[in-house]
């Protein structure tokens, strides 16, 4: 019974997405289908129909709520690529908006994969939802496998440190992990720096209740003025930078990798500065 209901809602949502996307985009979206068997699911669990249905509400938010503007999306090269972005906002709307942009604005459309936290697979519904829309657990093996099959992967090297940022730390990049650089070197993958403007103000967190987070097994437990981390309708701007190519040994010392990571971080930081200068206000 529930399954039948789910199917109906899914069809509705898919129809909505298609209506918003327009005919031409729809035809191009069909090229994203990557099924290898008669059950319509790729080996990682991605399903195009499910994803198109799931995109609907996010596409609406993209157009009408966050009113996303993208700059330089054409710089994202074809084939394997790592999109490296700043991360913020308590809820990963920044990831969702980059995903919608790559699906609806990039040409050809791309279904990006992002590496999710290891606690996601232990969450009911969320785990299944993430798998069907192509988001998978961020282990190095998964990332390597996807890059080798020429996928576009979104990475937030700030991780939980970024998304749980408090209000005074907005637009200050937290410490970057080095893992993505190792994988880029190993698989000869270009890195496209991405700056998201707007997400950092969407849910101003005043404090992080660490003991509660620990109790619930969450990475953080933010307290916002509304009590919940509901995103405010801030204006989003997405800046895509020129692809950066790195060479070197993936098993190099951390200090060497860190130098390269700092190049990426600087590229993102400068786009953040540019974006903050160009906007009129948080909401417009």
């Amino acid at each position: 019974m529930f399954e039948g209901l789910g199917d109906k809602i899914r069809q509705r949502l898919k129809g909505w997405t298609e209506q918003m996307a327009g005919q031409e985009r729809n035809e191009r979206l069909q090229a994203l289908v990557r099924t290898e068997n008669e059950y319509g699911v790729d080996p990682f669990g991605f399903n195009l129909d499910f994803s198109l249905a799931a995109v609907g509400p996010f596409l609406w938010l993209y157009r009408n709520y966050f009113r996303v503007e993208t700059f330089g999306i054409e710089k994202v090269p074809a084939g394997r690529v790592l999109l490296v972005s700043n991360h913020s906002g308590q809820l990963p709307m920044d990831g969702a908006m980059i995903g919608v942009a790559m699906m609806m604005e990039a040409s050809p459309p791309r279904a990006i994969r992002s590496m999710v936290e290891k606690w996601v697979p232990s969450l009911p519904y969320v785990s299944t939802f993430m798998a069907r829309i192509g988001q998978i657990v961020g282990t190095p093996e998964n990332c390597r496998r996807l890059l080798e099959s020429d996928e576009a992967i979104l990475v937030f090297p700030e991780g939980a440190r970024g998304i749980a940022k408090l209000w005074p730390q907005r637009y200050q990049l937290q410490e970057f992990g080095l893992g993505f650089m190792r994988l880029a070197l190993e698989t000869h993958t270009p890195i496209v720096p991405v700056a998201v403007i707007g997400a950092e103000e969407q849910a101003p967190a005043l404090m992080d209740l660490k003991p509660v987070a620990k109790l619930l097994g969450f990475p953080a437990f933010p307290i916002t003025p509304t009590g919940l981390p509901i995103p405010l309708p801030t204006k989003y701007r997405l800046y895509f930078g020129d692809p950066l190519h790195f060479t070197g040994r993936p098993d190099d010392e951390d200090s060497e990798l860190d130098k390269k990571v700092r190049t990426v971080k600087a590229a993102i930081q400068s786009m953040i500065h540019q974006g903050l200068k160009e906007r009129r206000s948080i909401f417009w």
Binding site: F44, G45, K118, P121, S122, I136, V137, T139, N142, R145
Partner: peptide, 9 residues
Amino acid sequence: SPDNSNFLT
């Protein structure tokens, strides 16, 4: 396990 990669070698 929730920590598993999608394909274990």
